[in-house]
Amino acid sequence: MHARLRCSAVRGLSSAVKASRIYRPVASQLPCAPIVSVSTRQYASAAAPSQLTVPKDYVPPTQPPTARPADVRKAQLLRSYTSLLRSTPLMLVFQHNNLTATEWAAIRRELRIALAEVPAGSDGVDISPAIGLQVIRTRIFDIALKIVEFFDPSKVEPTLATTLTGKRVKTVYNHDLSEAAYKAVKEATKDGLAEAKPSAYTELAPLLVGPLAVLTFPTVSPAHLAAALKVLAPSPPAFPAPPRKKYPGYYDPVAQNGLQKLLLVGGRVEGKVFDIDGMHWVGSIEGGLDSLRAQLVYMLQSAGLGLTSTLEGAGKSLWLTMESRRSVLEEAEKGPQEAEKTES
């Protein structure tokens, strides 16, 4: 009897759930949802009960319908990774191979010490506490990158949704876990379509293999990048490892073992993908973005000066030629008269 029940009823239920596909979180499904049932209690001022209950198909604003179940860990990681990709202009990608917890702790400690010594930028915000090394789930990160690259939230059509008062209004569900995002990514990556067209995804996708960790910066700061590179992937002429005397913890066997297993594979700066040499170039920019801007301004100014002097030059040389010619002619006119005067 028990087995029969399991076969028929449960299977039937699961198929019914699968058929709907979209997981609509209805308020009544949540045990903690404060659904007010007025009818059970007696109040002095009795209001209409219908006004104080949530409509059956009401969708909470923080839990819009999703293409896949939203309460699983993968979905939450996906939310977190899309936010990470959008809010991180500078990111280093590392491959980590069997690092132990103590090795991670040693590496993070040395990184924190090195970053704390970098002076704050021109805007006065100290970003070093916000720079962190974080292990990621590669496949989920790959999907997050696809969503960031191929899904345009502004092109989603509005759908009808019920408000608290029971009215049907047009609402746009264009979040990253939405059906629209899911479909857009499926469409873009169908039959190797994504690989055919060059994009930031096709550049970064080859790096997203194996166990990965990312070092995220809240802003493009070459000084902080250089400090991080010196600790995590030192390359002697430009980015030497920290000196042994000043940083004995860096030469601790635990930290050194961990660093040997950590491999820099590339980076992403302002949506563009750089390899190791590219990251070295970004790290070697003296004075950061401000100095680059100053260089550009200087270059534009000097070009302007050159142009004006060139344009002026033609007029000036003409004037000089005419002037010299005039003086020659005047001398020639004066010359014979003076000669006659001296003779007579």
Binding site: P64, T66, H175
Partner: peptide, 9 residues
Amino acid sequence: KQSINLPDG
């Protein structure tokens, strides 16, 4: 359990 986007800065 939420499904909206996290702030993207």
